[in-house]
Computed example of a mutant assay.
Amino acid sequence: MSAQTIGRQDSPAATARRSRAVVLLGAAVLAAADLALKALAEAILSNGTATDLGPINIKLLYNRGVAFSFGADLSPWVVITVTGVIIAALLWYAVTSAPSMTGLTRAGAAALLGGAVGNFVDRLDGQGVVDYFHSGWFPTFNLADVFVTAGAALLVLGNVITRPPRTGH
Score class of each variant (00 low, 15 high):
S2I: 00
Q4M: 10
T5Y: 10
I6S: 15
I6R: 14
G7A: 11
D10G: 15
S11K: 06
A14L: 02
A16H: 01
A16K: 06
R17P: 02
S19I: 00
R20H: 00
R20L: 00
A21R: 12
A21S: 13
V22W: 12
V22E: 12
V23I: 09
L25N: 05
V29P: 08
L30M: 15
A31H: 05
A31T: 08
A31G: 08
A33L: 15
A36C: 15
K38A: 03
A39W: 14
A39K: 12
E42I: 07
L45H: 03
S46F: 08
G48P: 09
T49L: 05
G54N: 10
I56P: 04
I56G: 04
N57C: 12
L60M: 07
Y62H: 15
R64H: 11
R64V: 09
F68M: 13
L74G: 01
S75F: 06
I80F: 00
T83W: 09
G84K: 06
V85P: 06
I87H: 02
A88E: 01
A89D: 01
L90R: 00
L91H: 08
W92M: 05
W92P: 04
T96S: 14
T96V: 12
T96E: 15
S97C: 06
S97M: 12
S97N: 13
A98R: 07
S100D: 12
M101D: 14
G103S: 07
L104F: 04
L104C: 08
T105F: 00
R106Y: 03
A107F: 00
G108N: 02
L113G: 03
A116I: 03
A116W: 03
D122L: 05
D122E: 01
R123N: 09
D125G: 14
G126T: 08
Q127S: 11
V129G: 06
V130E: 03
V130I: 12
Y132L: 07
H134P: 02
H134K: 05
S135K: 05
S135V: 10
W137I: 14
F138E: 02
F138V: 08
F138C: 03
P139W: 07
T140F: 04
T140V: 15
F147S: 10
A150G: 05
G151F: 02
L157W: 14
G158C: 07
V160S: 05
V160G: 02
V160F: 13
R166P: 02
T167A: 14
